[in-house]
Design a protein around this nucleic acid. Structure first.
Lengths: 334, 334
DNA sequence: CTGTTAGCGCATTCAG
DNA sequence: CTGAATGCGCTAACAG
């Protein structure tokens, strides 16, 4: 029940293993048409597929790239990134394998797998919460080409993709202030609450309030999933001094906030304004339409190209950085 | 910049490669404490990680399992299945790699990767739309242990996990009929529309109507994503002879249907009843709460165990089948 | 045009 | 307790 080897194909086709290899790997060595056909027939007959472990060992490359995903129930932009990666990998003759990193334990496991040489390069997407800098550095140290999508610091030697979420978040909150909102709440991802210093969208929020001399900070959790967001918002909106605006760290949470407000008999944006982050399509069918902070277009070919540039380069390349364009999109909910 | 090998560790530690292998793979061969320490230090110092390609080639197993996912933006139950797989893999000392199959092209690529021996077993989840039976058979033919989650037919020799979605869908639609609904529409996934014969939840729908002598079939697309569902429902509900009930092939679509109805000034379930499929948590925060067809608990340890039973068995095991318990959950939307 | 040979890095005999 | 030798399946260089 063991898989057939090139040797067995060679015997069946009455040729040497070298010929089998040349025919099937399609190198440019000339092979007689009739011989080639015999090999192909034999391979088909046995259901032969080359053993990748052996091939990788010999060629010292796997022809695989690895996508390290920070979440399982990905948001639409992660999905789009994955698609773009698969597409370009196809074009360049690479396979894509994915590692899911939804906890620190998973990050450790992913690092081990990557260091053991499963792929020729890696695209690490949005794993900031779980993937400590040191672990990333361990991988970079093996010389593996890497592109990291995150706003926190990354090890030397890998490309990095950043978003100006802090600045644009500030802009969004300043818009709320300009509209006369005075009690503005922030709905955070769990991890954001555990940091010493505010970063990213939370920092954008505090910066805007600081700038305009607003002391009050209303920070709640719930941005991680729709149900938690709904419950958190419901509670927040029931309080006697309820906020007149909520800036949620994700669009999905923001939509739950809108629903919670409506279910509580409040009008959006009349009684409470709502802004999300991410610019997901669903924001266009919410009622009112969702104001959000995020990219205008979801296109990640430039990000993916960073990786394949590295894979095709002979020597090590200088580290590059991409800052993705983000904007504040004012729609009906604010 | 190439990764260090066991040989280099051996030289640094002044031992043979055999000793390095024994120390680091933790086999039961006795090694002097002092020697062991020298090896460990040398390995740490060089940042050594064994080359998995070489190890797999030699041991003829990869210690990896592969999760083949049918969709990228997974629904919560896929997420839960993935978690359960990762957990059990950890316990058994396996790594998990994921292949995304969101098109026929991806299925072809995934099949090639699996046949080339990237893992010792595979769990194929919900890829019915893209993974043709023949391609699955090709993989099974290599002797790879496989568990397939799908209701369509699967090749001999692999375990299969099924859901009684047809029967329970029938039950749900019969409930709508019993409540006096007369114009019941079905919102389908795109692939369901392209099949010759109705299957699954669509078959459940037609069966219920057949049984009760209802001729009219109202079938629309849109179940694949929230925006499409909203638009499709809006159109449907604007028609002069609008339905008084909509059975949507996914909970996410069903929630969009509820929103579309409310935005059109209709009451749910007064003017139109809505039922979804999947029993996602979000159904509990919709207004009204979503009636649905699906599993009561999302627990996939039994599914995952099928795979690891096969991996640990010496010989080939008889093919097994699990039918997951599904129920119709009547809540506020019907 | 094709066969022979020599490793890729590792785990595992068999000697010592 | 440890080292030398073998080969997993494949590709690439070298001979014919």
């Amino acid at each position: 029940m063991s898989r057939p080897t090139a040797r067995q194909v060679a015997e069946l086709a009455q040729v040497s293993v070298a010929t089998v290899s040349y025919v099937l790997s399609g190198r440019d060595r000339p092979v007689a048409a009739e011989t080639r056909q015999r090999v192909l027939d034999a391979a088909r007959q046995l259901g032969y597929t080359p053993n990748q472990a052996a091939r990788s060992l010999r060629k010292r490359r796997t022809q695989r790239v690895c996508l390290v995903q920070g979440s399982l129930g990905g948001n639409p932009s992660d999905e789009r990134l994955a698609r773009d990666l698969h597409e370009m990998a196809d074009v360049h003759g690479y396979s894509v394998i994915t590692l899911a990193v939804y906890s620190e334990g998973r990050a450790r496991a992913a690092a081990d797998v990557l260091r053991s040489g499963i792929a020729d390069g890696a695209l690490v997407n949005q794993t900031g919460d779980h993937f400590p800098h040191d672990l990333l550095a361990e991988i970079v140290a093996t010389g593996l080409p890497m592109v990291v999508v995150r706003n926190e610091s990354v090890p030397d030697g890998c490309d990095v993709v950043r978003t100006p979420e802090t600045q644009v978040s500030t802009e969004a909150v300043e818009h709320l202030l300009a509209e006369g909102r005075t009690r503005i709440a922030f709905m955070a991802h769990r991890q954001e609450l555990y940091r010493d210093q505010p970063t990213g969208r939370l920092l954008g929020y505090t910066t805007a309030l600081d700038r305009h001399g607003v002391d009050q900070r209303i920070i709640v959790s719930g941005a991680d999933d729709r149900v938690a967001a709904y419950q958190s918002a419901t509670e927040l909106l029931r309080s006697p001094d309820r906020p007149d605006a909520i800036f949620a760290a994700s669009d999905r949470a923001a939509i739950s906030v809108i629903n919670a407000a409506k279910d509580a008999g409040l009008s959006v944006p009349g009684d409470v304004a709502v802004i999300g982050v991410g610019n997901i399509d669903e924001g266009l069918i919410s009622n009112p339409q969702l104001s959000t902070v995020g990219p205008l277009r979801h296109d990640y070919t430039d990000v993916v190209r960073l990786l394949f540039d590295r894979l095709q380069a002979d020597g090590p390349l200088p580290a590059r950085e991409i800052v993705r364009p983000w904007t504040f999109l004012r729609r009906g909910s604010s």
